[in-house]
Amino acid sequence: MVSSYNTINGTKKIRKEILEKDQSKETIGKKSFSHKEQSFKKLGLENVSCKYGEDTIFSNVNLCVKSGEKILISGVSGVGKSSLIRSILKEIRVDTGNLRINEEVYSQEEAYDVFAVVEQTPVVFESSILYNVTLGNDATDNAVISVLLEAGLPEFSNHNALQKKISENGSNLSGGQLKRIEIARALFFNHRVLLVDEGTASLDLKTSTQIHKLLLSNDFLTVIEVDHHIPEQVRGLYTSRYILTKNGLQEDLT
């Protein structure tokens, strides 16, 4: 079960998008890092360590992720995989080391511009499919249909289906559909770097495999996923696989 801490923190980006609903149409889906019209080229973690009180969560984490790469980070429960994701988002302060995007130190606000988070518990609203993708921002139906198709939701890719209302907690949709709506939302806002935190753990094997193939076969997406139960059928689709320990990352050669 996802803790309330993860659930609350998982809505941070969503709340930020809602607060930005007054941005101009021209900027929708075209945000860039540090307001310099740069595209994402790489993320670098250099000797990153994180503590909780006096206890070390992990230390000496070094990682370079280039645009388009698909990275899997596994490890035993409690080793700090989710904390590593929160560190990349600047929601958790690191004790030592540096995190850089395109060789530049970045802020939490800039992290929210670059990264989208896919967690075990989808964040959806009791509103239309259209609203759940756009968060109320202006967009043509065709623009929304385009990202729904890219996310593997052809059943919602027509003008009438966009008005379908999602029930409370998404009870009228399957887990796979809810996950794909989150992915469509990330694509709409041009977030091409996905941080996947146990994102398919609640899904059945078939659906989990389908969503992994959707993400890992998209050349335009950069994926950093932390999980410890990845379907065997998709493990070979990752660019690199690592195991997180308290002493850093080790290459997973299995």
Score class of each variant (00 low, 15 high):
residue 102 N to L: 10
residue 61 V to D: 04
residue 89 L to K: 11
residue 30 K to N: 13
residue 176 G to T: 06
residue 121 T to S: 14
residue 223 V to R: 02
residue 27 T to W: 12
residue 141 D to L: 02
residue 20 E to C: 06
residue 11 T to A: 15
residue 180 R to W: 00
residue 36 K to F: 09
residue 211 I to T: 03
residue 105 V to A: 13
residue 79 V to A: 08
residue 170 G to C: 11
residue 248 G to K: 05
residue 97 G to P: 11
residue 94 V to D: 00
residue 102 N to Q: 10
residue 227 D to S: 15
residue 24 S to Q: 06
residue 18 I to E: 15
residue 184 A to Y: 04
residue 161 A to M: 11
residue 233 Q to F: 05
residue 125 F to P: 08
residue 96 T to A: 14
residue 58 F to K: 07
residue 8 I to C: 05
residue 44 G to I: 14
residue 150 E to V: 04
residue 195 L to K: 00
residue 173 L to R: 00
residue 216 L to E: 07
residue 99 L to M: 14
residue 7 T to G: 03
residue 226 V to T: 00
residue 230 I to E: 05
residue 228 H to I: 03
residue 249 L to V: 10
residue 10 G to F: 07
residue 247 N to I: 04
residue 9 N to R: 12
residue 99 L to H: 03
residue 20 E to K: 10
residue 128 S to A: 08
residue 204 D to S: 11
residue 9 N to G: 06
residue 124 V to R: 09
residue 217 S to E: 14
residue 224 I to E: 00
residue 55 D to L: 12
residue 100 R to D: 01
residue 156 F to T: 01
residue 114 V to S: 05
residue 248 G to C: 02
residue 185 R to C: 02
residue 201 A to Q: 01
residue 207 T to L: 01
residue 104 E to H: 10
residue 91 E to R: 06
residue 144 V to M: 04
residue 102 N to H: 10
residue 194 L to P: 01
residue 146 S to A: 15
residue 243 I to C: 12
residue 140 T to Q: 07
residue 213 K to I: 12
residue 5 Y to I: 12
residue 87 S to H: 04
residue 20 E to G: 03
residue 231 P to T: 01
residue 188 F to L: 05
residue 91 E to H: 06
residue 194 L to R: 00
residue 58 F to R: 06
residue 110 E to I: 06
residue 187 L to S: 05
residue 37 E to T: 13
